[in-house]
Simulated scan of single mutants.
Amino acid sequence: MNKDQVKGVAEKAKGKVNEVIGRATGDTKQEVKGDVQQAIGEVQKKYGDAKEAIKKQAKKAH
C-alpha cells in the first residue's frame, strides 16, 4: 500500500465522520463537506491503486 492509498482511505474516513455528524445534527454544510471529502479520498485512493498496478507491471516486465 502506498502513501496515496493510505491518504485516500484516511480522507474517506474523515469524510464519513463529517457526513454522519452533519446528518445527525442537521448541519447540511458539514454533511456536504463530508461527501466531498469522501469523493476526494476515493480519487486519491484510486490514483494510488493505479500507481501500484503500474509498479507491479513494471516488475513483471523485468
Rank of each mutant, 00 (worst) to 15 (best):
D27R: 01
A10T: 06
A24Q: 13
V32F: 02
I40M: 11
A24G: 09
H62R: 09
V17I: 13
K3D: 13
T28V: 12
V6A: 12
K46F: 15
V6F: 03
V36G: 00
K45V: 05
K3L: 11
A53L: 02
Q37L: 02
R23I: 06
K55W: 03
Q44P: 02
E42N: 06
K3T: 09
V43H: 03
R23A: 14
E42T: 13
Q44I: 15
K29H: 12
K33V: 07
G8W: 00
V17W: 00
K51N: 02
G48T: 00
G34M: 01
K33H: 11
Q44A: 15
K7R: 10
E31I: 04
K45Q: 13
E31R: 04
I54W: 01
K59I: 15
H62W: 02
A39R: 09
A61P: 01
A10P: 10
A10D: 14
V9P: 01
E11W: 03
Q38N: 10
H62A: 08
Q44S: 12
A24T: 15
D49W: 01
D4V: 01
Q30P: 03
G41C: 03
G15E: 00
A50E: 13
R23H: 03
E19G: 01
K33D: 15
A53K: 13
K12L: 08
Q37M: 06
E31A: 14
K45E: 12
Q5K: 14
K3Y: 08
K60S: 10
Q57F: 15
G26K: 04
I40N: 00
V6Q: 12
K60P: 06
Q57H: 10
K14S: 14
V17P: 00
N2G: 04
K46L: 09
G41Y: 00
G48H: 00
V9Y: 08
E42I: 02
K59Q: 14
Q38E: 05
V43R: 06
K14R: 05
Q30H: 14
K12I: 10
A61N: 06
A53I: 02
E19C: 04
D4Y: 01
E31F: 07
Q37D: 11
A50W: 05
H62K: 15
T28Y: 12
I40T: 01
K59L: 14
Y47Q: 04
K46G: 02
G34R: 01
G41Q: 00
K12A: 13
T25P: 06
V32T: 13
K7D: 14
A61D: 10
K46S: 07
Q57M: 14
K14H: 03
E42C: 06
A53D: 07
E11Q: 09
A13G: 01
K56P: 02
E19H: 10
K46E: 04
K60F: 07
V17H: 05
V32E: 02
K3P: 09
N2P: 01
D49N: 09
Q44G: 05
K59H: 13
K46R: 10
K51V: 06
K59C: 05
Y47V: 13
Q30D: 08
K29E: 15
K33M: 12
E42L: 14
K33S: 05
A50V: 07
Q44N: 11
G41W: 00
G22K: 02
K59W: 07
V36N: 03
A39S: 11
I21R: 07
